[in-house]
Design a protein around this nucleic acid. Structure first.
Length: 885
DNA sequence: CTCTCCCT
């Protein structure tokens, strides 16, 4: 590494001899315990006694003695049966004063998870917790609801705002919405974008006294959003509309503005999920609104499952002890889609009422292709040209599958419509004007004569004129990894006399709304990540999108006026091959995080937890096994139980695989700060721009990755892509000014957005480190010295031991091996004998020039012909728990 | 020789 000053084990004696000697002693003691600790890293059960011995060095004197009031939550956790009290105070949930209420709640949760009323569940014999009297009724009884007391809050809206509101479709429904909310604990509101439900429904509740301390419903109105930007911007808008900005706040990962005055809180769904882990009854809230539920995000789905139970419990408690507990109302807000999964009896009894609200949306005319083209990018190109040549002014939004397609098509279009210096495009596009039958698509006449390539003089400044139209085309790419400055261009007005044409990925389907779009061109495809629970491999696949998402895409043309959607596929394909809905995220993602969180909440059988859609049958089991291997769970008589390690991991806002590394480092007090920086890096991911764009924009001559500036950050010799990222962050943190940081990013081809995110994540983890381990010095920036690197590589190897690979040194012995310029590896472990276990080191790896004999990887990518391992770290067999040959 | 999109 560049900053390879080894961290001295013992520093030279300075002034404060005594202190340093103490430190030295402490370190030595810890070192003695270290081999044992490291040996145990790979064991399936985490030995808590070993932790204790080092932990005592961290927090010197007095252990916390368990007070009688505290719940005996940890009894089952120590593998040797000893009660565990380590760091209990900070890590373990404290039981509040109303212990009986909460115990009742927890008991009922455990019970409900065992008997979720799922249509197939049958066994109730293994109920491990005695339900308390307040929740003893059978789950089939309708949810109780205390009476609604009338209350009003006056607002101070301006006349202008009142006028705007009155035009929203949801405004006319205020009375029916509030009447439904009054008599139901759970309500579903369906309305398309533009109905105004997100901004208005919270205000209806506000005016009925929700969130007002003196009202019968003093708790907050909580509104969840799937995305941070939406939470922040909705909060601001509602605050403005109410004329009471202080009453509306937002909370997202790195940013909270909640105060004592807050009555409406907009937050991301992940925030509410975190809060549920500590307070299952959501005692702070009087109403929860889950917005955009139709998107079927993982978090929203889980929230629906948990809230189905929380609402029932809260309202039962509110009935039996109205002076102590107030009721909780739940509103699920969704576009008009398959609501069935939200109304399933396993979730809600009685079935919640559904209110439908019209949308203020203009009609969009659909145009299908007669035939489905084989090359959708080419088809898109032709369609854009036609729209541009023949149709009245209005922006064009084109949906494609990925960055590469977008960049290519943008160049091709720019070449035709938009004159630029010739060497700005280093890829030759001589296929312009390529023939091939083009389907006629109504109502545009087939005018596909493209031979009049316009490379003429540009009398219109930077634009040249198309033969058929007198109007230039303003082409902009849009995808998530694009720098924010570039992204923001789509929100500005295009240069005068030009037509806006945005080439976008899925970001434009939900996350970003581009103004003034009249025409949508949709290729009908999506690139999606697929996850195989048994092998752990993930794969990107381009597939037909769903009918629902195609409809959503088309709707983007109807926001300013009547629009048109040109679909680059036939109506037969749409009807017969498009699935009606995209699979919910819960069926496509690893489940470790969710299982771990459910277990910490006392839900013993996550596979039976009620959810709108069940995860794939193997996914929960696979996650459970992976958590067992990590030591976050340990085998129990009837089901795997959470360990103390697991509990600590669950407290950290990081994926289990990295939270484990963090807890290990913190507990051992070995480079705790460095580990925090590393975990921050890992939770954000690859900060490097992809080389193509980097080379083009900055250095023409550096074609090869081995000469790209990033190798400077990798150290000599390079040992890990991941440690290179870490070094990039540490260097970045050491730079004082924003300008210098930006300069640094562009020099090394780093994405500023990601570097900032890493920085914030590091601050967040540092705060948690300080809170939980007050003895650790968090002042200085950590250095990536030689021994620190070793330590991290050991831990990385442990974490990724299931993803190890061995270099194929003699390729002649392996039939079918190809492309030897790229180092080939064989995956170790379960799949080792399989031919498909041969993989290649991804060309962007910093280790490509000196591939190690043994490595661990984080990603296995399946390309059409080849499988690649990406993001690798050199390792040694001694660091892996057991390497199967 | 390449990576859709979110979140604690």
């Amino acid at each position: 590494m560049v900053a390879s000053t080894p961290v001295p084990e013992v520093t030279a004696m300075g002034k404060r001899k005594a202190k340093q000697f103490e430190k030295y002693l402490a370190k030595k003691l810890k070192k003695d315990a270290r081999p044992e600790l490291l040996a145990r890293l790979g064991q399936s059960a985490f030995r808590t006694d070993a932790l204790q011995s080092t932990k005592n060095l961290l927090v010197p004197s007095r252990r916390e003695t368990a007070k009688p009031k505290e719940a005996p939550v940890d009894n089952a956790e120590s593998s040797d049966g000893e009660p565990v009290v380590v760091a209990k105070k900070t890590f373990v949930r404290r039981v509040p004063e109303e212990a009986t209420d909460l115990n009742a709640a927890i008991a009922s949760i455990k019970r409900s998870s065992l008997n979720p009323l799922s249509d197939t569940a049958e066994s109730t014999s293994d109920v491990s917790v005695e339900p308390l009297d307040t929740v003893q009724e059978a789950d089939a009884t309708p949810d109780p609801l205390p009476p609604w007391e009338t209350y009003f809050v006056l607002t101070e809206r301006t006349r202008e705002i009142e006028e705007q509101r009155s035009k929203l479709p949801v405004f006319a429904e205020e009375q029916s919405i509030m009447e439904t909310l009054r008599s139901n604990a759970v309500t579903i509101i369906c309305g398309e974008t533009g109905s105004g439900k997100t901004t208005q429904v919270p205000q209806f509740l506000y005016e009925a006294g929700f969130g007002d301390r003196d009202s019968p419903n003093p708790g907050l109105i909580g509104v969840t959003q799937p995305r941070r930007v939406a939470a922040v911007s909705m909060a601001r808008r509602v605050g403005e509309e109410l004329g009471r900005p202080l009453h509306v706040a937002h909370q997202v990962r790195y940013d909270a503005v909640v105060t004592r005055d807050t009555r409406i809180k907009f937050m991301t769904d992940g925030i509410l999920l975190r809060e549920l882990a500590d307070d299952f009854l959501l005692t702070k809230y009087s109403a929860i609104l889950l917005d955009e539920a139709h998107e079927r995000n993982l978090n929203t789905d889980i929230l629906i499952g948990m809230l189905s139970r929380a609402v029932r419990l809260r309202n039962r408690l509110a009935c039996s002890q109205p002076e102590k507990t107030r009721p909780l109302r739940l509103v699920i807000m969704s576009a008009t889609l398959n609501i069935d999964e939200f109304t399933a009896p396993r979730l809600f009894t009685p079935t919640p009422p559904i209110i439908r609200v019209d949308a203020r949306q203009h009609p969009v005319t659909m145009h299908f292709s007669r035939k489905t083209p084989t090359d959708h990018v080419d088809a898109a190109y032709r369609m854009i040209c036609k729209v541009h040549a023949n149709l009245p002014p209005g922006g064009v939004l084109v949906f494609l599958t990925g960055k590469q397609e977008i960049v290519r098509l943008a160049r091709r279009l720019a070449q035709r419509y938009n004159k630029r210096p010739i060497n700005a495009w280093n890829e030759d596009d001589d296929d312009d004007g390529a023939e091939g039958p083009m389907e006629t698509i109504e109502p545009i006449e087939s005018e596909e004569d493209e031979k009049a390539q316009s490379d003429s003089d540009d009398s219109m400044g930077q634009f040249s004129m198309d033969a058929e139209t007198r109007e230039p085309l303003h082409v902009l790419p849009l995808y998530s990894l694009l720098a924010p400055e570039e992204q923001n261009k789509v929100f500005q007005l295009p240069p005068e006399g030009t037509r806006l044409c945005v080439l976008a990925t899925n970001v434009a389907e939900t996350s970003l709304t581009i103004p003034n779009i009249r025409y949508v061109v949709d290729c009908g495809l999506v690139k999606q990540r697929h996850f195989d629970a048994t092998s752990g491999a993930q794969q990107y696949r381009v597939e037909w999108t769903s009918q629902a998402s195609a409809t959503q895409r088309a709707g983007r043309a109807g926001r300013v006026g009547p629009g048109h959607c040109y679909r680059l596929f036939s109506s037969a394909v749409f009807d017969q091959q498009f699935p009606p809905f995209s699979p919910p995220e819960i069926q496509r993602t690893p489940m470790e995080s969710l299982v771990l969180q459910l277990k910490t909440m006392g839900i013993d059988h996550p596979e039976r937890f009620p959810l709108p859609s069940a995860p794939p049958s193997g996914a929960v089991i696979a996650a459970q096994q992976s958590l067992l291997r990590m030591g976050a769970l340990c085998a129990g008589d009837d089901f795997p139980r959470i360990t103390l390690l697991g509990r600590k991991m669950a407290k950290l806002p990081i994926a289990p695989i990295w939270s484990r590394l963090l807890v290990m480092s913190w507990e051992m007090d070995e480079y705790p700060l460095l580990a925090a920086a590393f975990a921050s890096v890992m939770s954000v991911g690859d900060p490097f721009l992809d080389d193509q764009s980097f080379d083009k924009d900055h250095t023409e001559q550096s074609q090869s990755h081995s000469h790209s500036p990033r190798t400077e950050l990798a150290g000599k010799p390079p040992t890990s892509d991941l440690l290179m990222w870490l070094n990039a962050l540490l260097q970045y943190l050491a730079i004082p000014t924003k300008n210098a940081r930006n300069e640094y990013c562009s020099r090394f081809g780093l994405m500023g957005k990601r570097m900032e995110e890493m920085t914030q994540q590091f601050q967040l983890l540092k705060r948690l480190l300080k809170q939980n381990y007050p003895g650790v010095d968090c002042q200085e920036l950590p250095k990536l010295g030689r021994s620190g690197q070793q330590h991290l590589r050991k831990l990385i190897s442990q974490s990724l031991s299931e993803r190890a690979a061995e270099r194929i040194v003699n390729p002649k012995n392996v039939p079918g091996l190809k492309r030897m310029p790229f180092p080939a590896y064989r995956i170790l472990g379960r799949a080792a004998d399989d031919v498909s276990a041969v993989v290649y080191l991804h060309p962007t790896s910093v280790l490509r020039t000196m591939p190690p004999l043994l490595l661990v990887y984080t990603e296995l990518i399946t390309a059409p012909e080849t499988r690649y391992i990406k993001y690798v770290t050199a390792t040694e067999s001694a660091w892996l728990p057991s390497v199967d040959k």
